[in-house]
Amino acid sequence: MAKLLAKLVDVSVGYETTLIDEINLEIYSGDVIAVLGPSGIGKTTLLRTLAGLVRPISGFVELKVKRRGGLGYIPQRLGLIGNMSVRSNVEMGARMHASKWLPPIFPLPKKLRPIVDKALRNFDLTDFSNQPVRTLSGGQQRRVATARTDAQQPKLVLADEFLGELDDDNVEIVMRTVKATIKEKKSALVMVEHHEELAYQVANRIWRIVGGKLIEEDIQ
């Protein structure tokens, strides 16, 4: 049975002005939700509100996931540490997977290393694992960001246009792994997407933003 992971109650999102208002939605385990709409309409703001980075103007977001490591966020600009190796970036995710807080000055414990190795393998990154992220192509970097989230194994993943720069083969690699993880870990994915065709292919729920309102499309 699907488990409730997040709930938006009368939420209005925006900064100085409201971009989307009266959002009442629920996110369940197994959901792959694509958020669609033209540029500047508030898709990223909605995602940042869900991530707890922006306060809602009104209403509240109720997250039913652990505060530490329960939520994964892949921003549009990926949020990787360019000076660090692919492995170090993925290790950050594995650190958050550990339920116990590890002093950041200590290296990653041995028992968490297989998680990193598996995430690197899943996204075909093993060969580049010691390379600094800044030397990789845009598509490879996107895979690193997804591998970091894979190693974290959060219950709810928020991804901002993360399929954008990927070619068809990479979309295949990423979505195959993401969907398998969602099924296995009973997690959910909310992704902002510009490519509507792609969104309809990979998502099982579509949220469309029209005229300041969020409407759920019936795609069953």
């Binding site: 940042r48 991530a51 707890g52 980075l53 652990k66 505060r67 530490r68 490591g69 329960g70 939520l71 994964g72 966020y73 892949i74 921003p75 549009q76 600009r77 990926l78 949020g79 990787l80 540490i81 360019g82 000076n83 660090m84 170090s88 950050m92 995710g93 650190r95 958050m96 807080w101 002093p103 950041p104 000055i105 960001a145 974290q152 959060p154 928020l158």
Partner: peptide, 25 residues
Amino acid sequence: NAPLEASRAMGMTRAEITYLVAIPE
């Protein structure tokens, strides 16, 4: 801002963000 936001959303502590994100970046 992106690495900081990603790490905050993941639930990292301030010490982790400083040591693992801000200093290497």
